[in-house]
Design a protein around this nucleic acid. Structure first.
Lengths: 227, 227
DNA sequence: CAAGTGAGAGCGAACGATCATTCGCAATGA
DNA sequence: TCATTGCGAATGATCGTTCGCTCTCACTTG
């Protein structure tokens, strides 16, 4: 009943926003503002008033959409890694395992940089160390990524495309450490070419995963100058 | 004149504490307490009152030793990575490059876990993303580690013990990303054997660095079961 | 050696600022 | 008409920091 009522209200090719749509829009507006503030000052450093100023909204209005600051943080943490999905499905469609992983890492790194979300990701990691709710959300995200990696490697292994060097779980663990580390590492000031980093990554990953037909894996990687 | 006077006071084989020694002791006591609080609640989450309670000291007393909370944070950040030095010198004395690096990483990981300082390290990384002073201190520490790695690899390269796959800078960058990533990664709940991780690391590092006499590097690494 | 002295150390109440959150009320619109 | 939304002043709590005070003790002085 209520369900039908709320659905029938405005559903045609209607540019205007229904009640629920507007609510969704405002919620997103708050989350976008909060994200900007958290990037700038961290979870504890950013105040509700900061977020309100950024969202051009009063505290009273904001609290109509989120019951607490914690809830805003939780929502943002839950949404933070939604881009991982497409990066991982793109990876899964790549036959060459080494190249697939390298590109996934690189896309992950590039997207993090482009969206300016790097400080947020690190902040989330820090918060996950003490806040149980955040930790659980992170863990869930991580489990998904982990499973994707594992499935990807497992299939390639069954097809005889790769020959893993240790247990798949160990491989995945170190792989994910590399991915996280690239985000944490203080690259921006370092002035290192993307190609160099990709090359180093490629070598590293092919080592732990060992493609059987080393068509370009081992042989074409050239030894380079000092700088 | 004044200098000599202040120096001559108590300098023999004197078990008692001079003025300066006591001051140093109290400073360390505050830093220890602050570290505990920061691990528990983060830099912004831990209050001066928390630190005072932990240090069993009044706010007034604490402010005799540090001019501000910021100063405490700065001091802790500057001291946080002092253990890196011995890990790196230990590494430098290891002829086998791959083994040296693997062991350095592993010691780093183990020490971080044993001291319970993992949340602090992540917190520092997050703070470094926005706080300039913290970032500069981190950068300085990082430059030291970076230089150590580079020197280590460079010497081994000159001696013909390794054959780097890309520019040394790229190798070092990815190496450090792995090190950082291992700390960030949510390992504790994962129940993965240390040996497995070491093995995966070993393969990864030997790939990017390529020991010329692959005495045990490439050949002895066995392919393992799924789990 | 005894008495005196002053800088350093410690305390904890108190400060103004800021925090997350609430509430009464006005405006909106289905 | 009434549930929803927005507002912004107000709330009590807590924040980092200060201040006036007492006490301690290494050193100077007589």
């Amino acid at each position: 009943m209520n369900f039908f009522k709320s659905c029938q209200s405005r559903n045609a090719a209607d540019g205007q926003s229904s009640r629920a749509e507007k609510r969704e829009l405002q919620t997103q507006r708050i989350m976008r503002a909060a994200t900007a503030c958290f990037v700038r000052s961290g979870f504890q450093g950013a105040s509700i008033h900061d977020i309100c100023r950024e969202a051009e909204m009063s505290p009273g209005a904001l609290y109509r959409y989120f019951p607490s600051k914690e809830a805003i943080i939780d929502a943002i943490v839950a949404e933070a890694r939604k881009n991982d999905v497409e990066i991982l499905t793109k990876m899964a469609s790549c036959e060459d395992v080494v190249e697939g992983i390298v590109e996934a890492f690189y896309n992950h790194l590039r997207l993090t940089e482009e969206t300016g979300l790097r400080p947020l990701f690190v902040e989330i990691r820090a918060e996950a160390m003490r806040n149980t709710a955040v930790r659980n959300t992170c863990r869930k995200n991580e489990d998904n990524v982990r499973a994707s990696f594992r499935l990807y490697l497992e299939e390639a292994w069954r097809d005889g495309r790769i020959r893993p060097i240790v247990s798949l779980d160990a491989v995945v663990t170190v792989l994910m450490a590399v991915g996280e580390g690239l985000i944490m590492a203080d690259l921006p000031g370092r002035e290192l070419s993307a190609a160099d980093i990709q090359k180093a990554l490629r070598a590293k990953i092919s080592a732990v995963v060992r493609p059987v037909e080393a068509s370009h894996g081992t042989s074409s990687l050239c030894l380079d100058g000092t700088n």
